[in-house]
Nucleic acid binder design. Structure first.
Lengths: 333, 333
DNA sequence: CGCTCACATGTGAGCGGTAACATTATTCTA
DNA sequence: TAGAATAATGTTACCGCTCACATGTGAGCG
């Protein structure tokens, strides 16, 4: 049973043709007599032959494999994107390596190197941590690169961008309409607030309504449940005047929800909470969470489709793909 | 910039040695004079050479790649497992293909075929849907296989099994201790209840306490938030006598929580809810969810470690790896 | 001083395919 | 009916590496 691999030459012998003819049949191209083709197909079936992708890749220099780099697959945002990428890739016979960087720039660099040595045909990047110059270097020397939610000014890198700025504005505007003026924000501790579109949207919207942003109400924490929980504890103890919280993502918002509950505050009466991403859990929390919604699956899908386009026309510079956002109002505001 | 690939022979020329000596250096094995080694290393660095994994795989017949097959990466259970697998694999320079089957047996079969053609070195399977005989065939002819939470009686398939039966018993026992006797269960619609260890545990525990399981209280639904929500709606409308619900997983439980709330029932006073898996969200819901806990990351880690062991000793039959469970009592019971 | 032996290094083949070109069989044209 | 054009198939090289074995070199020994 550990019979050694059946090769294209075994099939050729069996069908009484040359290995090249077999190659023509499996790439169902070229001109092969119908009857020869049939004979070869029979031989393939009888021997249970399957071409070695490795050998094919070796000579064609294409692996039909792509890399997807995410900060943490554990975040519902990323895995919905990942599903979109995977499903789209699989439909074309491509496989996907998913890599987590944990928002660690060094990890990200290692990952890119690993992917490079695995000889993937392209990379989709959905993180924000690695230094721009390294990404540029990667795009320059290497393979097609699609970047999600980040601006990389390079002709060989293609962009898929959710309109985060607008999302943040919609969110904060909604809170202002509900009568809030003391609006806090929980942002991602891994990134400089000044570089975050969510923070820009937050500040700009406040200013547009003649509210001066209070820097003490801008709290940085890990972008997960625990981070949101703890940041809210601290924030509300130190700044009881805050009546609404806008968070970096729904994970933090759900942590904030629980935090408010544990401190005996009612949401939204005592403190409103507004998330971002609209993950599936958000409709199920109690109270359910208002959020900024966009189709994460489609983000992944579009990114993968763009990568396919880049395979076709490697030297073309593609326009960014914009994706809209929507305000979803639920009980938490 | 699209300079063609730097090969081992380029390095060899530069260092003034044969390509084989370079090979010895990059596999840092064999006997090579320290100074020759150094000279080669310098040449490698100067040329920015990186060995082609494809070519290496071609000749060694090892790809340093494994396949992880899960039902749906979107389920928090799976992605924690996936992280465990990925991190462990990456530490050894292995890459992981993650594939979703969506609990569709045909899909699963296709995936296995795809993985086979990608020539992965081994497979970790964390699903329950594909027919046993096909899995056996896969294990027989193909590569090392680690199966999570399922019994495959084959010497070449290795098992990692959480003690699900005990978990179910702990859960139901806990509900009985809290005074419940009309305990319903929400199970996975994709699988026959009679084959589910959770259902066995549920029934056995009831019987052990002289409670006859009411088959009408066993509801099948998709194992996700919406499935749990809707199943609970139906269940509680048709059977208002039910005072506690044990669910297949936390996703369903969280849906149930919300469902109870929407129907004006208090949890746990009017209806207790008990989950399974103890995902991170469960501590953050309102009320927080009692559940059966076990370390999902470790599940993935152990599975990957076992796969490595199987690479070392392909003909050895390994004992199953058991993993314990723990009852976590929170507010929902 | 000629022999063996151990160790460092080199050579050639081949993993399983595809590409490019060569060859043969067939048909068409003059 | 010879000669060219065309279609079908075969031959050879090579992708970039590792393996098995060949070769070279110097130390150790009687």
């Amino acid at each position: 049973m550990p019979r050694s691999r059946i090769t294209i030459r075994d099939v050729a012998d069996r069908a009484g043709v040359s290995h090249q003819t077999v190659s023509r049949v499996i790439n169902n191209s070229e001109r092969v007599t119908p009857e020869t083709r049939e004979r070869v197909k029979v031989a393939i079936k009888e021997l249970g032959y399957r071409p070695s992708r490795l050998a094919q890749s070796m000579v064609t220099q294409k692996t039909r494999t792509i890399g997807l780099v995410v900060a943490d697959i554990t975040n519902p945002f990323f895995f919905e994107v990942a599903r979109g990428v995977q499903d789209t890739a699989l439909a074309q016979g491509y496989n996907v390596f998913v890599c987590n960087t944990d928002d660690n720039p060094q990890g990200e660099q290692d990952i890119l190197t690993l992917l490079a040595s695995q000889e993937v045909d392209g990379v989709i990047l959905a993180t924000v941590s690695s230094p721009e110059e390294e990404l540029l270097a990667f795009a320059e020397n290497y393979k097609p690169l699609v970047v999600i939610n980040r601006d990389i000014p390079h002709p060989k890198a293609s962009l898929v961008s959710v309109d985060i700025l607008k999302g943040a504005k919609l969110a904060v505007e909604h809170l202002i309409e509900r009568g809030h003026r003391n609006i806090a924000m929980l942002s991602h501790i891994g990134h400089k607030p000044d570089e975050m579109r969510r923070v820009h949207g937050y500040r700009e919207t406040l200013l547009a309504h003649d509210i001066t942003p209070n820097e003490e109400w801008l709290v940085l924490a890990p972008p997960n449940l625990a981070g949101g929980y703890e940041a809210t504890q601290t924030l509300l103890k130190e700044h009881p005047e805050v009546t609404a919280i806008f968070t970096y993502n729904d994970l933090m918002a759900i942590g904030a929800l629980r935090s408010c509950h544990d401190m005996g505050m009612r949401v939204p009466q005592d403190c409103a909470v507004m998330g971002f991403d609209d993950i599936k859990f958000s409709a199920m929390t109690q109270p359910s969470l208002s959020s900024i919604s966009y189709d994460k699956y489609v983000v992944g899908q579009k990114a993968m489709q763009r990568l396919f386009e880049m395979f076709e026309e490697p030297d073309f510079t593609f326009a960014p793909i914009p994706l809209g956002v929507e305000l979803v109002i639920r009980e938490s505001t």
